Amino acid sequence: MNETVKKLTLPMTVQLDDMSPEEFITYYKSNQSEIERDLHEVGAVKFQGIQIESMEVFQHIVNSIANKFLAYIDGNSPRTKLSGNVYTSTEYDKTQRITMHNELSYSAKWPAKLFFSCIQPSDTGGETLLADSREILNHMDKALVDEIERKGVIYIRNLHGGRGIGPSWQDTFETESKEQLEAYCEQYDIEHQWKEDGSLRLIQRSKGIIAHRGSGARVWFNQIDQFHPSHLDSEIYEMMQHMYDSTEDFPMFVKFGDGTQITEAMVREILDTTEKLTIAPPWEINELLIVDNELASHGRNSFTGERRVLVSMTE
């Protein structure tokens, strides 16, 4: 069982010698301390040459090398829970590119690690994009960084109760129980307001820039651009302006923690800076990608054909 390691900036790639699932589990456990060290240094490690031929095999591997799994509760990306701890990667329109983000960075509870594997690569595109969150922070406009650190960020989401634009609160929290949802919100200090039509407004406060839980390194950790109205197609934005009294009634909205507005120019700075640091490693079958969710942001390229990428998340 030979291995070849490429010390790339992101991700670090480990080429294995066509390992069975059980061989990889043994290998991982024997080298776990070194793998954790590399993950904290680089932010993402990709293993190539593991026999991952199905969702069941992926789940077996991840269940064997990780614990404290996190359900996709409070998520804002369309995906399907397949079995146990395994979800599909985002099911967002394949013609669209998903911009860079750290998973659930708007929420009070986010995963520490993400485990990805591609069961079916797309015909073209479809890469899981990666960028170093430390480098994003280092290259971001200093005035914007200072403003975020002073004010923090407020995310607003308006979730319908079964009919409407965007996700429902039932799908978002994987429950039909208002009481269970309210208990979750109270546990994690999420402000929530029920509306007469059965929809729900969530107000979540975030720092936007945090210290990595392991190293203490400062990292860019937010989804400002994805929540800002400027990310919408112009026709959709115009339609929603007619539908809603205020941008704060849109399915998603973001502003500074003191209530002041985040401008389109700021969002453009975020997108431009992140784009310069983004890489697009192609997917092949029989790969396992482990991402430190605080050290590395991720996204998805548009694609053609069918694509099936699986993901599990751990605390």
Rank of each mutant, 00 (worst) to 15 (best):
273 T>V: 11
302 S>C: 10
24 F>P: 00
307 R>K: 03
34 E>P: 05
214 G>Q: 13
102 N>A: 15
46 K>Y: 06
167 P>R: 13
4 T>V: 07
227 F>T: 05
295 L>N: 01
37 R>W: 12
60 H>Y: 12
88 T>F: 02
180 Q>K: 13
131 A>T: 10
96 Q>A: 05
276 K>L: 15
123 D>G: 06
224 I>G: 04
54 S>A: 04
11 P>K: 10
279 I>G: 13
99 T>S: 15
208 G>R: 00
222 N>E: 05
221 F>R: 02
102 N>S: 14
182 E>Y: 01
121 P>C: 08
179 E>Y: 08
133 S>M: 14
171 D>N: 15
93 D>R: 10
156 I>R: 06
126 G>Y: 01
186 E>M: 12
215 S>Q: 02
114 L>H: 02
230 S>N: 11
153 V>T: 07
28 Y>R: 05
25 I>R: 04
47 F>Q: 01
42 V>P: 03
152 G>M: 01
178 K>C: 05
292 D>M: 10
87 Y>F: 07
224 I>E: 06
104 L>T: 04
281 P>M: 12
73 I>D: 12
300 R>L: 04
299 G>C: 09
129 L>P: 04
304 T>S: 12
204 Q>Y: 00
196 E>N: 14
272 D>Y: 13
46 K>W: 06
1 M>W: 10
95 T>W: 07
162 G>F: 11
15 Q>R: 07
272 D>T: 13
32 Q>C: 13
176 E>C: 08
232 L>V: 09
223 Q>R: 04
158 N>C: 02
278 T>Q: 11
8 L>D: 05
49 G>M: 12
142 K>Y: 03
309 V>K: 00
218 R>F: 00
109 K>H: 13
189 D>V: 15
271 L>D: 06
205 R>D: 03
234 S>I: 11
148 I>M: 05
79 R>E: 01
264 E>S: 15
273 T>L: 09
7 K>F: 08
117 S>A: 11
95 T>G: 11
246 S>Y: 11
191 E>F: 10
20 S>E: 07
218 R>H: 00
164 G>Y: 01
114 L>A: 12
220 W>S: 11
175 T>P: 11
96 Q>K: 15
101 H>S: 07
242 H>W: 05
253 F>G: 02
52 I>H: 04
109 K>D: 12
179 E>V: 13
299 G>R: 08
56 E>A: 03
247 T>K: 15
175 T>F: 06
78 P>V: 03
247 T>P: 11
271 L>F: 10
270 I>Y: 13
22 E>F: 05
199 S>K: 01
182 E>V: 10
126 G>R: 04
194 W>D: 02
243 M>T: 10
36 E>R: 13
193 Q>I: 05
127 E>M: 09
202 L>E: 06
232 L>M: 14
49 G>F: 01
4 T>I: 12
79 R>V: 04
177 S>Y: 08
132 D>H: 09
245 D>I: 09
107 S>I: 00
166 G>M: 09
10 L>A: 03
17 D>F: 02
31 N>F: 03
149 E>S: 07
64 S>Q: 05
134 R>L: 07
252 M>F: 15
299 G>M: 07
156 I>T: 14
202 L>R: 01
29 K>Q: 13
1 M>F: 03
114 L>P: 02
293 N>K: 07
232 L>K: 04
93 D>S: 09
265 A>F: 13
129 L>C: 02
